[in-house]
Design a binder for these strands. Structure first.
Lengths: 342, 342
DNA sequence: AAATTTTGTGTAAACGATTGCACCAATTTA
DNA sequence: TAAATTGGTGCAATCGTTTACACAAAATTT
């Protein structure tokens, strides 16, 4: 037996008022008397009335849904951000719809289209790596859709955005290595076009300069974020004439590759060689030795992105200029970089 | 400059027909002439027309959204299932809305309500651990909502469901240990109420019986899926009079705890002690020694759950009885259980 | 006490797509 | 050739809420 859904008209009939009164009462309209509101709420509860969000969204031209677009939902960083967004928006009665781009521009464009069709109130987006053309994102601005970007910044756009302070994270990591007594610190970086890697590289260099340590170009290696690449990278470093005694890697995966090779070659970590990675991937804490890493505060990032977006949607942003929020990263110091004696 | 959205009325005006004709043409209604259809499609494309899914959903009483309810979206297993669902439904023009229950019954009920309000076409659910009362799920059946359950089965409900064959996974794992020459195999199990743990325990026992190995009650320890619990568990096992030489754990986390303690006590894994975990958590492959584990085929699970649900929604299920699909798990053999000599 | 404002509610038209019914023309059947 | 069927389209109601406008009654101001 399929139960029928009640509508405001059912309530109206029961209470002998019109649907508009019911609607207004439920929306706490100031011109409705307290007495009526109370009656309406009571019978609504009694009947188990639930508003039809579709109808409401259609009429208002806006749904209470917000869209999230990420490269892959099952990457721990993104999953964690999404979790944060969901937790934050749920309180405000929004729910989230998720799209994956698989790092492909085409999928990104399609996802945006899908979300537009669903008349989402706003979108939270981490751009695909492949995306170099941002017309589709600009088009959103033109359409007046609220957007918050996270993680992957797009400098040509003045959207609200929330990112981690990659420079600071890198700086902290390298400073920590220096304080542990390491003096010849190498760096694994990523594709130089991507801003996060640029920033981490800057942080690395800046820390070395501040502590008057040499910057050796041979110690800076560009690679993708993979274990195998990290293995190759560390081999190159170890074979070189000037051998580093520590590594700050822009990726936990390549840091792991390095760690594996060092263990295989019986080079003691952290005593002979220190390592700090980046991202605080879940696996880092379980390695032996456990891997120090820079935590990206991903859950908080989700919460903040959601808050920013909802402010935009509700139109209560303080200022006209888009806010860019830089979260402070946290250095997770573990065994791989913690040596007691120099 | 905010671009206006085109509606079927705009197209109708342009083509000098009525909106109904446009609507029917777009939906490929048989009574519309090919000529008209072609004209409609052309101008739709020219104008960049995109249907308002909200209006459509309101009228039809069904959206093209499907809801997913999981305990936590950032747990790798669930994230991976969700990814599978998203990939499968996207092809068919559905999109997914996600809710988290945090393993709490209250959140589960609320999530269902939210999704009902959004008039989702169907739901894919992994029940919260806390849920022992399933009235809210039964109510969905009564309302005629299509539902597919995954991972956590509910025997009192005859929904479509897709789970892993936990019995088989456990059996394979233990059989593998036996073939590697281990003879005294212990087991970490989970809360006995939960069916997946019951099944894994059955598989464990069955394999031991088939190979005529003793089942020692002291070697079966119930615990939660945590590293710390695994550490306690293995300590208990090592202190006992009859010491096992291998462990099949229902959880990768408790398996990891065991591995840590064994390493600390200089008990060689896999030579002196073999370990196999369950779930194939991403970290297992990076441990030293890497941890053998049973893979749950989570991505495929998502794809299949999505397919089942869409079949239900479209009403083209083969049979009246709900299908229960058991996926074959795959044993990932790694260092922790692979010894060359006995 | 008249004029003005405020309060509380009803009327009716949206929002954009879908669909049962009706209608006429063209085609087929008897 | 009349009757019946089919093809192609329009009309208008509908899904459930929201909201601009209108209007009477009550409260407030002059």
């Amino acid at each position: 037996m399929i139960k029928k859904k009640y509508t405001i008209h059912d309530l109206a009939r029961e209470l002998d008022v019109t649907a508009s009164t019911v609607s207004r009462a439920l929306n706490d309209h100031p011109r409705i008397s307290e007495k009526t509101k109370k009656k309406v709420f009571e019978t609504a509860r009694k009947f188990g009335y639930e508003p039809n969000t579709l109808a409401s969204a259609l009429r208002r031209g806006k749904s209470n849904t917000i869209g999230i677009i990420v490269p892959f939902i099952d990457r721990s960083f993104f999953a964690s951000v999404i979790r944060g967004v969901e937790e934050e928006t749920k309180k405000a009665g929004f729910h989230v719809t998720i799209c994956q781009t698989h790092e492909k521009l085409e999928d990104e464009i399609q996802s945006i289209q899908t979300l537009l069709n669903a008349r989402v109130s706003g979108m939270i987006i981490s751009a695909a790596k492949e995306s170099t053309n941002f017309d589709h994102l600009k088009a959103l601005q033109d359409k007046g859709i609220s957007v918050v970007l996270f993680d992957r910044l797009i400098n040509s756009l003045d959207n609200c955005s929330v990112v981690i302070d990659d420079f600071l994270g890198a700086y902290k990591a390298v400073e920590h290595l220096i304080r542990q007594g390491y003096t010849r610190i190498a760096h694994f970086t990523g594709p130089e076009k991507i801003s996060i890697y640029k920033e981490r590289l800057r942080g690395y260099q800046s820390a070395l300069e501040d502590y008057k340590l040499p910057i050796n170009k041979k110690w800076i290696i560009e690679m993708n974020s993979q274990v195998s690449e990290g293995r190759k990278g560390i081999c190159r470093l170890l074979k070189g004439k000037q051998r580093p005694d520590a590594l700050f890697s822009s990726s936990d995966f390549s840091a792991l590759g390095a760690l594996q090779v060092l263990k295989e070659q019986n080079i003691s970590v952290p005593d002979e060689f220190g390592i700090v990675g980046f991202s605080n991937e879940p696996f880092t804490q379980y390695l032996d030795p456990s891997l120090s890493s820079v935590d990206q505060n991903s859950n908080k990032m989700g919460h903040i992105a959601a808050k920013l977006l909802m402010e935009q949607i509700n139109g209560d942003t303080m200022s006209d200029i888009a806010q860019k929020i830089y979260l402070k990263p946290e250095l997770m110091i573990r065994q791989s970089s913690k040596r007691s004696k120099t």
